[in-house]
Amino acid sequence: MTDDGPLLDSIWLTERRATTARQPGLTREQIVRAAVERLDADGLPALSMRKLAAQLDVAPMSLYWHVPTKDALLELALDAVSGEIRLPPEDDDWADRLRAIAGGLRETVRAHPWTASVYGVMLNAGPEAMRVYDAFVGALEDSPLPREEIAPAANVLNNFIYGFIVNEMKWSQRVAAHGSTPEQVGTEVAEKFTAAYGDRFPRITRYLGLADAQDPDELFEYGLARVLRGLAAEHPS
Protein backbone atom coordinates (compact mmCIF):
# COMPACT_ATOMS: atom_id res chain seq x y z
CA MET A 1 0.00 0.00 0.00
CA THR A 2 1.33 3.40 -0.90
CA ASP A 3 0.50 6.74 0.69
CA ASP A 4 2.18 9.14 -1.71
CA GLY A 5 -0.65 9.32 -4.25
CA PRO A 6 -3.90 11.29 -4.15
CA LEU A 7 -5.98 10.44 -1.11
CA LEU A 8 -9.09 9.65 -3.19
CA ASP A 9 -7.25 7.84 -5.98
CA SER A 10 -9.55 4.84 -5.64
CA ILE A 11 -10.34 2.48 -8.47
CA TRP A 12 -13.99 2.90 -7.54
CA LEU A 13 -13.99 6.71 -7.45
CA THR A 14 -11.57 7.70 -10.19
CA GLU A 15 -12.34 7.75 -13.89
CA ARG A 16 -9.70 5.83 -15.80
CA ARG A 17 -9.04 5.61 -19.51
CA ALA A 18 -10.43 2.40 -20.92
CA THR A 19 -7.90 -0.05 -22.29
CA THR A 20 -8.88 -2.09 -25.31
CA ALA A 21 -5.95 -4.50 -25.11
CA ARG A 22 -6.54 -7.57 -22.99
CA GLN A 23 -4.59 -10.73 -22.30
CA PRO A 24 -6.56 -13.46 -24.10
CA GLY A 25 -8.23 -15.81 -21.65
CA LEU A 26 -7.46 -13.65 -18.62
CA THR A 27 -10.12 -11.67 -16.76
CA ARG A 28 -10.09 -9.22 -13.88
CA GLU A 29 -12.16 -11.68 -11.87
CA GLN A 30 -9.47 -14.35 -12.28
CA ILE A 31 -6.79 -11.92 -11.16
CA VAL A 32 -8.73 -10.82 -8.09
CA ARG A 33 -9.57 -14.40 -7.15
CA ALA A 34 -5.90 -15.39 -7.40
CA ALA A 35 -4.90 -12.33 -5.35
CA VAL A 36 -7.33 -13.25 -2.57
CA GLU A 37 -5.98 -16.82 -2.54
CA ARG A 38 -2.40 -15.58 -2.22
CA LEU A 39 -3.31 -13.06 0.45
CA ASP A 40 -5.18 -15.71 2.44
CA ALA A 41 -2.28 -18.13 2.18
CA ASP A 42 0.72 -15.87 2.73
CA GLY A 43 -0.49 -12.47 3.92
CA LEU A 44 -0.14 -8.94 2.64
CA PRO A 45 3.68 -8.86 2.25
CA ALA A 46 3.54 -11.82 -0.15
CA LEU A 47 1.40 -10.03 -2.72
CA SER A 48 3.20 -8.60 -5.73
CA MET A 49 2.19 -8.21 -9.33
CA ARG A 50 5.22 -10.27 -10.41
CA LYS A 51 4.39 -13.21 -8.13
CA LEU A 52 0.74 -13.05 -9.05
CA ALA A 53 1.60 -13.11 -12.75
CA ALA A 54 3.74 -16.19 -12.19
CA GLN A 55 0.88 -17.83 -10.31
CA LEU A 56 -1.42 -17.16 -13.28
CA ASP A 57 1.30 -18.10 -15.78
CA VAL A 58 1.13 -14.78 -17.62
CA ALA A 59 3.50 -11.87 -18.17
CA PRO A 60 3.41 -9.24 -15.39
CA MET A 61 2.34 -6.53 -17.82
CA SER A 62 -0.74 -8.59 -18.64
CA LEU A 63 -2.09 -7.83 -15.18
CA TYR A 64 -1.83 -4.08 -15.71
CA TRP A 65 -4.16 -4.32 -18.69
CA HIS A 66 -6.85 -5.34 -16.22
CA VAL A 67 -5.72 -3.74 -12.94
CA PRO A 68 -3.87 -0.38 -13.04
CA THR A 69 -1.92 -0.66 -9.77
CA LYS A 70 -1.23 -2.98 -6.85
CA ASP A 71 -3.30 -0.69 -4.60
CA ALA A 72 -6.20 -1.02 -7.03
CA LEU A 73 -5.81 -4.79 -6.84
CA LEU A 74 -6.03 -4.61 -3.04
CA GLU A 75 -9.20 -2.54 -3.31
CA LEU A 76 -10.67 -5.11 -5.65
CA ALA A 77 -9.68 -7.97 -3.34
CA LEU A 78 -11.13 -6.19 -0.31
CA ASP A 79 -14.43 -5.68 -2.10
CA ALA A 80 -14.47 -9.28 -3.29
CA VAL A 81 -14.37 -10.61 0.28
CA SER A 82 -17.09 -8.12 1.25
CA GLY A 83 -19.24 -10.03 -1.20
CA GLU A 84 -19.11 -13.03 1.15
CA ILE A 85 -21.12 -11.22 3.83
CA ARG A 86 -24.70 -12.41 3.89
CA LEU A 87 -27.26 -9.76 4.76
CA PRO A 88 -30.21 -10.40 7.08
CA PRO A 89 -33.81 -9.96 5.89
CA GLU A 90 -34.90 -6.33 5.99
CA ASP A 91 -38.02 -7.19 7.97
CA ASP A 92 -35.93 -8.46 10.92
CA ASP A 93 -35.61 -6.29 14.01
CA TRP A 94 -33.18 -3.42 13.39
CA ALA A 95 -30.84 -4.39 16.23
CA ASP A 96 -30.79 -8.04 15.14
CA ARG A 97 -29.88 -6.91 11.63
CA LEU A 98 -26.98 -4.86 12.92
CA ARG A 99 -25.76 -7.78 15.03
CA ALA A 100 -25.92 -10.05 11.99
CA ILE A 101 -23.99 -7.61 9.81
CA ALA A 102 -21.37 -7.04 12.51
CA GLY A 103 -20.99 -10.79 12.94
CA GLY A 104 -20.61 -11.23 9.20
CA LEU A 105 -17.87 -8.61 9.08
CA ARG A 106 -16.04 -10.35 11.91
CA GLU A 107 -16.30 -13.75 10.25
CA THR A 108 -14.96 -12.28 7.02
CA VAL A 109 -11.90 -10.80 8.70
CA ARG A 110 -11.25 -14.07 10.48
CA ALA A 111 -11.45 -15.90 7.15
CA HIS A 112 -9.18 -13.33 5.48
CA PRO A 113 -6.77 -12.05 8.19
CA TRP A 114 -4.91 -9.73 5.79
CA THR A 115 -7.97 -7.45 5.68
CA ALA A 116 -7.12 -6.32 9.23
CA SER A 117 -4.14 -4.46 7.77
CA VAL A 118 -6.19 -2.89 4.98
CA TYR A 119 -9.31 -1.63 6.75
CA GLY A 120 -8.90 1.98 7.80
CA VAL A 121 -5.96 2.47 5.44
CA MET A 122 -7.54 2.04 2.03
CA LEU A 123 -10.93 3.31 0.94
CA ASN A 124 -13.44 0.50 1.10
CA ALA A 125 -15.76 1.94 -1.52
CA GLY A 126 -16.54 -0.93 -3.85
CA PRO A 127 -20.08 -2.06 -4.74
CA GLU A 128 -20.03 -5.07 -2.38
CA ALA A 129 -18.88 -2.92 0.54
CA MET A 130 -21.58 -0.38 -0.31
CA ARG A 131 -24.15 -3.19 -0.39
CA VAL A 132 -23.23 -4.07 3.18
CA TYR A 133 -23.10 -0.46 4.34
CA ASP A 134 -26.47 0.30 2.75
CA ALA A 135 -28.03 -2.54 4.76
CA PHE A 136 -26.22 -1.23 7.85
CA VAL A 137 -27.66 2.26 7.41
CA GLY A 138 -31.04 0.80 6.54
CA ALA A 139 -31.16 -0.96 9.90
CA LEU A 140 -30.37 2.32 11.65
CA GLU A 141 -33.16 4.02 9.70
CA ASP A 142 -35.57 1.53 11.28
CA SER A 143 -34.21 2.20 14.77
CA PRO A 144 -35.69 4.74 17.22
CA LEU A 145 -32.99 7.25 16.26
CA PRO A 146 -34.02 10.49 14.55
CA ARG A 147 -32.65 10.84 11.02
CA GLU A 148 -30.12 13.51 11.99
CA GLU A 149 -28.41 11.03 14.33
CA ILE A 150 -28.06 8.16 11.88
CA ALA A 151 -24.74 9.32 10.41
CA PRO A 152 -22.95 9.85 13.77
CA ALA A 153 -24.49 6.64 15.12
CA ALA A 154 -23.17 4.74 12.11
CA ASN A 155 -19.70 6.17 12.78
CA VAL A 156 -19.83 5.14 16.44
CA LEU A 157 -20.91 1.61 15.54
CA ASN A 158 -18.30 1.34 12.79
CA ASN A 159 -15.57 2.47 15.16
CA PHE A 160 -16.53 -0.17 17.71
CA ILE A 161 -17.03 -3.01 15.22
CA TYR A 162 -13.94 -2.44 13.09
CA GLY A 163 -11.83 -1.38 16.07
CA PHE A 164 -12.66 -4.58 17.95
CA ILE A 165 -12.20 -6.82 14.91
CA VAL A 166 -8.92 -5.30 13.73
CA ASN A 167 -7.36 -5.22 17.21
CA GLU A 168 -8.49 -8.79 17.86
CA MET A 169 -7.02 -10.06 14.60
CA LYS A 170 -3.72 -8.19 14.82
CA TRP A 171 -3.15 -9.34 18.39
CA SER A 172 -4.03 -12.96 17.63
CA GLN A 173 -1.67 -12.90 14.63
CA ARG A 174 1.19 -11.60 16.75
CA VAL A 175 0.50 -14.10 19.52
CA ALA A 176 0.35 -16.98 17.04
CA ALA A 177 3.63 -15.86 15.45
CA HIS A 178 5.27 -16.35 18.85
CA GLY A 179 3.85 -19.85 19.16
CA SER A 180 1.56 -18.97 22.04
CA THR A 181 -2.16 -18.57 22.73
CA PRO A 182 -4.09 -15.46 23.86
CA GLU A 183 -4.88 -17.20 27.16
CA GLN A 184 -1.20 -17.91 27.88
CA VAL A 185 -0.15 -14.39 26.97
CA GLY A 186 -2.97 -12.87 29.03
CA THR A 187 -1.87 -14.77 32.11
CA GLU A 188 1.76 -13.79 31.62
CA VAL A 189 0.90 -10.13 31.03
CA ALA A 190 -1.24 -10.02 34.18
CA GLU A 191 1.56 -11.55 36.25
CA LYS A 192 4.24 -9.20 34.92
CA PHE A 193 2.11 -6.07 35.24
CA THR A 194 1.11 -7.02 38.76
CA ALA A 195 4.76 -7.52 39.71
CA ALA A 196 5.76 -4.19 38.16
CA TYR A 197 2.79 -2.00 39.12
CA GLY A 198 0.75 -3.88 41.73
CA ASP A 199 1.59 -1.50 44.57
CA ARG A 200 1.60 1.68 42.48
CA PHE A 201 -1.62 1.15 40.49
CA PRO A 202 -3.77 -1.30 42.45
CA ARG A 203 -6.98 -0.40 40.64
CA ILE A 204 -5.46 -1.26 37.26
CA THR A 205 -3.91 -4.52 38.38
CA ARG A 206 -7.15 -5.47 40.14
CA TYR A 207 -8.93 -5.80 36.79
CA LEU A 208 -5.96 -6.54 34.55
CA GLY A 209 -6.47 -9.73 32.63
CA LEU A 210 -10.13 -10.12 33.54
CA ALA A 211 -11.31 -8.96 30.12
CA ASP A 212 -8.68 -11.05 28.37
CA ALA A 213 -9.88 -14.11 30.28
CA GLN A 214 -13.33 -13.76 28.75
CA ASP A 215 -14.26 -15.42 25.51
CA PRO A 216 -13.68 -12.96 22.60
CA ASP A 217 -17.10 -13.80 21.18
CA GLU A 218 -18.71 -12.89 24.50
CA LEU A 219 -16.75 -9.62 24.68
CA PHE A 220 -17.78 -8.68 21.16
CA GLU A 221 -21.43 -9.42 21.87
CA TYR A 222 -21.23 -7.54 25.18
CA GLY A 223 -19.75 -4.41 23.61
CA LEU A 224 -22.12 -4.44 20.64
CA ALA A 225 -25.14 -4.96 22.88
CA ARG A 226 -24.08 -2.04 25.08
CA VAL A 227 -23.71 0.29 22.09
CA LEU A 228 -27.03 -0.74 20.59
CA ARG A 229 -28.76 -0.43 23.96
CA GLY A 230 -27.35 3.06 24.34
CA LEU A 231 -28.60 4.08 20.91
CA ALA A 232 -32.10 2.86 21.69
CA ALA A 233 -32.26 4.15 25.26
CA GLU A 234 -32.32 7.86 24.46
CA HIS A 235 -35.16 7.45 21.96
CA PRO A 236 -37.32 4.54 23.16
CA SER A 237 -39.89 3.34 20.71
Rank of each mutant, 00 (worst) to 15 (best):
P236T: 09
G25H: 05
D91T: 15
S48W: 09
K51R: 14
I150F: 10
Y222V: 08
V175W: 03
H112G: 06
M122I: 15
I101K: 05
M1P: 13
A102K: 08
A72V: 05
A177H: 03
V227N: 07
G5Q: 06
L145K: 08
L231E: 09
P113N: 08
I11P: 01
Q214L: 00
G25F: 02
K51C: 00
I204H: 12
F164G: 06
A46T: 09
L78I: 14
N158Y: 05
A77C: 05
R86V: 15
N155A: 14
S172D: 12
T181D: 01
M169Q: 14
D71C: 02
R147I: 08
L231R: 06
V32D: 07
D215E: 09
L105D: 06
E90Y: 00
L76M: 09
V156L: 15
T115V: 14
A18V: 02
L47Y: 07
T20H: 02
P236M: 06
N167K: 07
L98I: 15
D71S: 11
A177Q: 13
P88R: 13
E191D: 13
L52M: 05
W171M: 06
G25A: 01
E149I: 03
L123P: 04
L231I: 12
S180K: 09
A35R: 02
E128I: 02
A211I: 10
Y64D: 01
P88E: 09
P60R: 07
D92L: 14
D40R: 13
A154L: 13
D212T: 00
E221C: 00
I150P: 10
T19L: 01
R16T: 01
A59Y: 07
E218T: 11
Q23P: 07
P216T: 01
R110S: 08
D3E: 11
P127R: 11
A225L: 01
P182W: 03
E128L: 08
F201D: 11
R200W: 06
M169V: 15
E148G: 06
